[in-house]
């Protein structure tokens, strides 16, 4: 069993690897793009500037992107005393600074945490969660999110959100250029091969990026469930919250999209059905999570 400290280190290392990988992919895309326009150096420089700017931006400002994409509004103690007190209590139990609190106007039950480290963390829940969950259930959900914060999962997941988004956007742009761009491909043969490689890379990059996203976030949910239960000392609370989410009529968070889905405590996009869907899910099946919690 990994300790919390090992997991924190692992997350920090993965974050660095992710940024390096991001640099390599963007630089490769930029270089090939440059070759296509016969300015390879220019392409590389351009890619370098873009990737540096995006990496810095996602590290320091990724949380506000996630929050504004999901329509989260700052919550005060006066408006939501129960929510505030629950989070404050669990921050004490985890030995962490209290995160900034946000509320999403939504009928569905969901929550997410984001930020670059525990000192710059934000926690958002839907108003549906505050309305429909009992206190012990809300504690379970908040405990789960607090362990994402404590483990530095939030940093990794925030970087994934912005960087994967950027790669998807750029490769989409390149594909369009290659397909509808200049037609005189047989000008020189080297260029032709490079274009094929570039095309393959442009198609593969977002798929690889997606796969990274799925692989990292599914295992994380189980771990956060377990650590959250360790914080609240009451796994049944989260289990019953997850059961409520499962049986709730409102499952879809309108403000969530593919870029932010992996941040939430439960997949905000659609129900888990079918083999192909489950292969590309950002979250493990909810029944498996409930079962694991009940076995604790």
């Amino acid at each position: 069993m990994q300790t919390v400290y090992e997991r924190i280190n692992q997350n920090k290392t993965s974050s660095v690897i992710l940024i390096v990988l991001f640099f390599i992919i963007i630089s490769a895309l930029g270089y090939l793009f440059g070759v296509y326009f016969r300015f390879p150096i220019f392409g590389l420089a351009f890619a370098f500037i873009i990737s540096t700017a995006m990496a810095l931006f996602s590290f320091y400002d990724g949380d506000s992107v996630a929050l504004s994409l999901s329509g989260a509004k700052a919550a005060t103690k006066k408006q939501y005393p129960e929510f505030y007190n629950t989070v404050e209590g669990l921050s004490i139990a985890a030995g962490l600074q209290m995160p900034k609190l946000y509320v999403i106007e939504e009928n569905s039950i969901n929550a997410f945490a984001t930020g670059r480290d525990p000192k710059h963390a934000s926690l958002a829940v839907t108003t549906g969660a505050l309305k429909k969950l009992k206190r012990v259930e809300l504690e379970g959900v908040v405990g789960h999110e607090m362990s994402h914060i404590k483990n530095y999962d939030i940093r990794m997941m925030m970087l994934v959100m912005v960087l994967v988004g950027v790669i998807a956007m750029l490769s989409d742009m390149m594909l369009r250029t290659f397909m509808y761009g200049r037609g005189d491909r047989d000008r020189d043969k080297g260029g032709g091969i490079l274009i094929i490689v570039g095309l393959a890379l442009a198609i593969l990059a977002p798929i690889i990026a997606q796969l990274i996203k799925f692989a990292i976030s599914r295992k994380r949910e189980f771990l956060a469930d377990a650590d959250g239960a360790l914080l609240t000392r009451y796994p049944a609370g989260l289990a019953s919250a997850l059961t409520k989410i499962k049986n709730d009529d409102d499952k879809i968070v309108d403000a969530a999209n593919k870029a932010t889905a992996h941040l939430f405590i439960e997949n905000p996009l659609r129900a888990h059905e079918g083999w192909l869907n489950s292969l590309f899910d950002t979250h493990p099946p909810i029944d498996a999570r409930i079962k694991a919690l009940k076995a604790m």
Binding site: P81, G89, A93, A94
Partner: peptide, 24 residues
């Protein structure tokens, strides 16, 4: 009602801080 919520959550926080203390 406000005092009850405050006291109840303070009781919770006492329990949590005790838990954190004992963990340490």
């Amino acid at each position: 009602m406000q005092l009850q919520e405050e006291l109840k959550s303070t009781e919770d926080k006492i329990a949590y801080s005790r838990q954190f203390y004992n963990d340490n």
